[in-house]
């Protein structure tokens, strides 16, 4: 068995249940610590898989460029709060696969926080953006090779409103609530909804307009330079 598979099994079967168990058993309020530890533990196998694969130069550079492009994309559009970052991460996942999509999202979120500020939200953002790349790659990379911009836009909008946005809201919920109750959760999610809708709309519009050009550019690189077949190179 591969070392990274072994590590993920250890995390899923031992570490996460142990954290949950300790978090619920210990006296006091441990929501934030327990949930954040679980988030970090979930990310470890992905990073380990990336490390043990020993990525080649071309793959590494392509990932870095797409990741930086995702972070920078908000500068290009002169509308406040219009963030195409997730859209570019989704396209990365589609073009390079689920694993690369995850790494790109997680490291991108971490890197962009060096320019804003690291905070209690950093692990959650890494997980959320990593998940966006991962899910897009898991669905559309090989399994259902959909390239229709409208379908992708709907997927991106839904992904943010249903998965990514609420995941980020969970961070707020676990950090600021004294007691976990459905009412409090509903309030936090309700407060986050307009923001998530806005974010989802930006992502959907970007995917609608930009998914075909970017995927074409990546395909062109593939034919012109043999990029992205990085794992088979050398």
């Amino acid at each position: 068995m591969r070392k990274s598979t072994l590590a993920s099994l250890a995390v899923i079967l031992v570490l996460i249940p142990l954290t949950l168990f300790l978090g619920t058993r210990l006296h006091g309020r441990w929501y934030y610590l327990t949930s954040t530890l679980m988030i970090v533990e979930t990310m470890v196998p992905f990073f380990l898989a990336f490390e043990t694969r020993k990525p080649q130069a071309r793959e590494l550079v392509t990932l870095a460029v797409l990741c930086a492009l995702a972070v920078v994309s908000r500068v290009a559009v002169l509308i406040p709060n219009f963030k195409p970052m997730t859209a570019i991460l989704i396209i990365t996942g589609i073009a390079l696969g689920a694993e690369s999509g995850f790494v790109c999202g997680a490291v991108g979120a971490f890197a962009s926080n060096f320019f804003f500020s690291q905070g209690p939200w950093t692990p959650w953002q890494m997980m959320a953006y990593g998940l966006a790349g991962f899910l897009a790659g898991a669905l559309f990379h090989r399994r259902f090779p959909v390239r229709n911009p409208v379908a992708l836009a709907v997927f991106g909008f839904g992904l943010i409103v249903v998965v990514i946005g609420p995941l980020l809201d969970c961070c707020t919920l676990f950090t600021v609530s004294t007691r976990l109750s459905w009412k409090y959760a509903a309030t936090v999610f309700g407060a986050g909804l307009p923001y998530n809708l806005q974010h989802g709309l930006a992502c959907g519009v970007t995917l609608l307009l930009f998914s075909r050009p970017l995927l074409e550019k990546l395909d062109r690189l593939k034919t012109k330079y043999g990029m992205m077949d990085a794992r088979r190179e050398e």
């Binding site: 002169l78 050009p213 970017l214």
Partner: peptide, 29 residues
């Protein structure tokens, strides 16, 4: 207009960055 202009900038930026990445990768190798 703003969104379409932004997408044009993003498109040009992507081309430039991806072509540049090949030089970097070859140099690394």
């Amino acid at each position: 207009e703003k969104i379409s202009a932004g997408m044009h900038v993003l498109s040009a930026l992507t081309d430039w960055a991806l072509e540049g990445s090949i030089v970097t990768a070859d140099s690394m190798r």
